[in-house]
Simulated assay, not measured.
Amino acid sequence: MNCTKRYVISIFILIALVCAAAAQEQGYRPLTGKFIKDTQRYGLGELTIINDNSQKDALIVITDLNQKPLMEVFIRSKETFKISGITDGKYNIYFRVGNSWDRDNSKFLEDEVRYKLDRPLEFETEETWDGTSYSIWMIALEEAVPDANQAMEKILVAEEDFPS
C-alpha cells in the first residue's frame, strides 16, 4: 500500500470516529439521580421528585432564597428520585424540562420549558416528646398525585431569570 492510500484511509477512519463520538454525545442522558451540582447535606429533610412526564427529562435546581444554586439533579422521564439529608431552611425549586440534554451548558436543546414553584419549600426538624419530626415533601412535575405539590403552582421562568 502506498503512502497516499494509507493517508486517505487514516482520514476516513478519523472522520468515522469523530462522527461516532458526536452521535454518542447527542444521545447522552444522565441517569436519574445524577447530581450535576451537589452540596453537603447534614439534615433530615426529604424531597421526592416524580417526573411523570412521559416524554421529557428534567433537571431540578434547588436554590437558597438568593437564587444561588445548591443542588442540581437529573431525573429521566417517567422516573422518581428522592433527595435526603436536606438541611433545615427555605429553598426555591426550579425545573428545566425537555429533550436532548446538553451537558456542557446544563440545559436541553429541544422542547425546553423552564419553571419554578410559586413559593419556597420549608424544611424543619423538631424534637418532640416521642422523637424527631422532619419535613418530607413530594413534587410531581406534571400531574398532582395524592399529597404532592400541596396546591403549589408552577410559574414559567425566562432563560435569563433561571439560576445558573
Rank of each mutant, 00 (worst) to 15 (best):
C3L: 12
K5L: 13
R6I: 05
S10I: 00
F12W: 07
F12A: 09
L14Q: 09
I15P: 00
I15T: 09
C19L: 12
E25V: 05
E25I: 07
Y28G: 10
R29W: 00
L31S: 14
K34L: 06
K37E: 10
K37G: 05
Q40Y: 00
E46V: 02
T48S: 15
T48Y: 06
I49D: 02
I49K: 08
I50N: 03
K56T: 07
D57W: 05
A58K: 02
L59F: 02
V61F: 05
I62S: 07
I62L: 10
I62F: 03
D64Q: 01
Q67P: 00
Q67T: 10
K68E: 14
V73Y: 07
I75V: 15
R76K: 12
E79T: 13
T80A: 06
S84D: 13
G85H: 07
G85Q: 09
D88K: 10
G89M: 04
K90W: 04
K90N: 15
N92E: 09
I93K: 06
Y94Q: 02
F95G: 05
N99S: 11
N105D: 13
F108P: 12
L109G: 07
L109T: 04
V113G: 01
R114L: 13
Y115T: 06
Y115D: 09
K116R: 14
L117I: 13
R119L: 04
L121H: 07
F123M: 06
E124G: 00
E127F: 05
W129E: 12
T132M: 11
I136P: 00
I136K: 10
I139N: 07
A140S: 15
A140R: 02
E142V: 15
D147Y: 13
N149S: 02
A151S: 15
V157F: 03
V157H: 02
A158D: 15
S164I: 10
